[in-house]
Simulated scan of single mutants.
Amino acid sequence: MKSLRGLLIVLIVIFAAAGGGYYYWQSQQSELPDYIASGNGRIEAEEIRVATKYAGRVDAVLVDEGDRVTAGQILAQMDTAELLASKAKATAEVARAQQGIAEAKAEIVQRQSELSFSQQQLTRAKELVKNNNISREQLDQRQANRDAARAGLSASRAHLTSAERGVEAAQAELRRIQVQIDDSVLRAPRDGRVQYRLAEPGEVLAGGGPVVTIIDLTDVYMNVFLPTRQAGLAFVGNEARIVLDAAPNFVIPAKVTFVADDAQFTPREVETREERDKLMFRVTVRIDRELLAEHIKRVKTGLPGETYIMLGDTHTWPENLHVNVPDAPNATDTNANASQGTPE
């Protein structure tokens, strides 16, 4: 009998707590002015997949999950043994092509000398043939020698041009290989935190295979869904507030940066107003980058929370939604700066 009485007492306490919680939630909802919309969401950050550009074997991964990285920092290294061999071959090709230029230039000097000599012989022959000291046939022969020397010089000059183009092609191939070698070093495109380490040394990846995923902790946002009437009054640039479940005492300022053009989760065509009111539109609010930079060590993704969005023209925020950021001086703002969406 006593155990039954104890069980009843426990059940009464549970129902009372649940009822009190529900009443509190309802009271909070009713306290919101009609110009403020709210929705649930999770903290998200811009995610970047750092992948290999070319197929190859992973030689080293230099970061672990959770590491902070800076833009330009080396994250991983692909194996470059084959590329280095190709580079050595391309370097030799460049040297050989440059040698071809030297040979072509020497050939031009030789052809110029031959042309000069044959031109002198032709000039003398023209004087000698006037006095019948040589035959007309000899004059024609020297004329042909001069023409052949001139053609040889033109061919040598063309050979030089071809050799120069060969050097350019060899150098381009060398640069291409060097670009592949440079791309084998995977660097962080921006500051962030390593979210996932997706490959390990020794793994062979196809081109575009991801190695590391990092998140940009200065590009944090939350997506919420609003019904038609509220979404119609939510504009890019409107002020917003984020309250996380893990830190309900803090109110984080944000701004609307995106309002979807298309409705979500409902048929594209509806006939009645009741159905149209069920349409939900995705709205994205982002936290200021400077504020995130000040609290970079505290930023965590995946945390659930509530977003409050100012609809239409600017209005005064309720007292419970004044900006209140952890460890910030003068954390609680006034109505004036609350309407501007910035902490004091």
Score class of each variant (00 low, 15 high):
V325H: 03
R286Q: 15
R150E: 12
V224N: 02
R146H: 14
E107R: 15
R229K: 10
V204D: 06
S156P: 06
A90F: 06
N132R: 14
W317L: 13
K278L: 14
F117C: 00
R5P: 00
M310G: 14
Y221N: 09
E44D: 15
A338T: 10
K87I: 03
T161N: 08
L303W: 10
E164N: 02
T213V: 14
E47G: 06
N40A: 06
T266W: 02
R190G: 01
Y54L: 11
T272G: 10
G209M: 03
A169F: 04
D327V: 06
E46W: 04
D59V: 01
M222Q: 09
G6S: 12
G41P: 10
E168G: 02
G41K: 10
Q178N: 15
V10W: 08
L321V: 07
P329Y: 09
F250I: 01
G100Q: 10
E47H: 01
G41H: 12
F225C: 01
Y24W: 14
G192Q: 09
E93V: 02
S38Y: 13
V129L: 03
E114F: 08
V50E: 01
I309H: 11
L291M: 11
S118W: 00
L186C: 07
K130G: 08
I101C: 09
G41F: 13
V256C: 08
L160W: 04
Q195Y: 13
L244H: 11
